[in-house]
């Protein structure tokens, strides 16, 4: 029971990060490998604010703002000039940005991990099991954010424009949609979700270092691919699946050392059976 809860809340974290990968992929048709490092930036923002004596609410606000600015700046200066360039060039640039962000934070904060205590929330008893409050908070807020995002995409003018751009940029432009603006908004949303993920991550593992974003980044990317890259519900499903599987594996002593192998194994199996991912759609690319 508590494993399930922990798994679901870890899954919510992966899902929030996976949404950033999948939305950017859906709209800009690129793999933003620096996305994981935005989480790291968000975590350092929390660390610095709390160190400076700031309230946790201020830390959350600053973290979101800094992540959004970072995501938009990276898009504008690193990716936008490469629009229309070969996917390989874009991919290598994204990897470069990832290393750049990690190196900068190492220069500023040093390589050794720093402890961040966000307030210990303790545990509660639920249905006879002991469940950490941070898991519940993560799960509930994560679910609210994802429901909000789904509504935003389905109901708002900008959300519909995102769907149009992800399907056919040229046709979207012919509707009068400013495609570049939609891409910027997508990066901003993805980064805000990464900021939220960084907070939940710190609630589980209260330590920040320059490479903090790598592992959750890769796991979330895996989740996005499992769910079908480009698909928003797919990213949510993939994230939750991966989180639950990870916690289950970790709780079984024989499996625990092979947790990551099991996760990537699952990815391979799913891609063999269904190359477009669980909820992915085949789509044709046009001008």
């Amino acid at each position: 029971m508590s494993i399930l809860f922990d798994g679901l809340s870890l899954g919510a974290i992966y899902a929030l990060i996976a949404l950033g990968y999948t939305m950017v992929y859906g709209i800009a048709k690129m793999l933003n490998f620096a996305h994981g490092d935005i989480i790291m930036v968000g975590a350092y923002a929390v660390f610095v604010t709390l160190m400076g004596g700031g309230h946790i609410a201020l830390a959350i606000g600053l973290s979101v703002i800094i992540c959004v600015v970072m995501g938009v700046v990276v898009e504008k200066f690193a990716y936008k000039p490469l629009r229309g360039a070969s996917p390989l060039a874009v991919l290598i640039t994204a990897i470069g940005v990832s290393y750049l962000l990690q190196s900068i934070s190492q220069l500023v904060f040093g390589a050794e991990p720093k402890t961040v205590t966000i307030a210990s929330l303790g545990t509660v008893s639920l249905f006879g099991a002991t469940i950490s409050v941070s898991s519940i908070v993560t799960l509930v807020i994560g679910a609210v954010i994802m429901a909000g995002l789904t509504l935003f995409v389905k109901k708002t003018r900008t959300g519909r424009a995102m769907v149009a751009v992800s399907e056919d940029k040229g046709a979207a432009m012919l509707m009068g949609i400013n495609v570049n603006r939609i891409i910027t908004i997508t990066f901003a949303i993805g980064s805000a979700l990464a900021a939220a993920a960084s907070l939940f991550y710190l609630m589980q593992i209260p330590s920040v270092e320059p490479t903090l974003g790598s592992m959750p980044g890769i796991k979330a990317f895996t989740a996005a691919v499992i769910g079908g890259i480009g698909s928003i519900p797919g990213a949510m499903l993939g994230g939750v699946m991966l989180g639950v599987i990870e916690k289950i594996c970790l709780s079984v002593p024989v499996l625990a050392p092979y947790t990551t192998a099991v996760e990537f194994g699952l990815l391979i199996v799913i891609l063999l059976v269904r190359p477009i991912g669980l909820l992915g759609k085949k789509r044709r690319e046009k001008v």
Binding site: V163, G170, R283, K286
Partner: peptide
């Protein structure tokens, strides 16, 4: 050319 309606909408 090719209509390009939004297939998923």
């Amino acid at each position: 050319e090719g209509r390009r309606v939004f297939q998923e909408l």
